[in-house]
Design a protein around this nucleic acid. Structure first.
Length: 108
DNA sequence: GTTATGACCCAAA
DNA sequence: GTTTGGGCCATAA
């Protein structure tokens, strides 16, 4: 059985360019609705070459989750803007407009 | 085996 | 709009 981390990454990989998903959404789609927090835990441990678009994952408020390093605090926003995501005045994303609305696919 | 930490969420005040 | 408190559980030490 796949680990929780691989389930999360599998979901995040499906996020299309120009869209974002919340941590809770990722957890729910992964089949683990209670593990929203673990998404962040896993993401911070992800290797660079994992191919996971971690920048497309934001919190419920549509705001970027800051980490300790100030180096990347603007990187996520930069990457998203480059993909066409627009930030509002309060540095927040209009979820109503940019949140990923996945199609119900019954496990293929 | 245990304890502490955390890129979270939600409801209530 | 803000603050407070509770819950949840993978990962690291």
């Amino acid at each position: 059985m796949p680990t929780a981390a691989s389930k999360f990454t599998a979901v995040i990989r499906r996020i299309p360019t120009g869209k974002v998903a919340t941590y809770g959404q990722v957890a729910t789609l992964a089949g683990l609705p209670k593990n929203a927090r673990q998404v962040g835990t896993v993401l911070k441990s992800l290797p660079e070459d994992s191919g996971v678009p971690w920048h497309r994952v934001v919190n419920s408020q549509g705001h970027i989750s800051e980490r300790n390093s100030s180096t990347f605090e603007g990187l996520q926003r930069f990457l998203l803007e480059d993909e066409g995501v627009v930030f509002s005045e309060s540095d927040r994303i209009d979820l109503n407009e940019h949140q990923w609305q996945p199609s119900r696919r019954a496990k293929h």
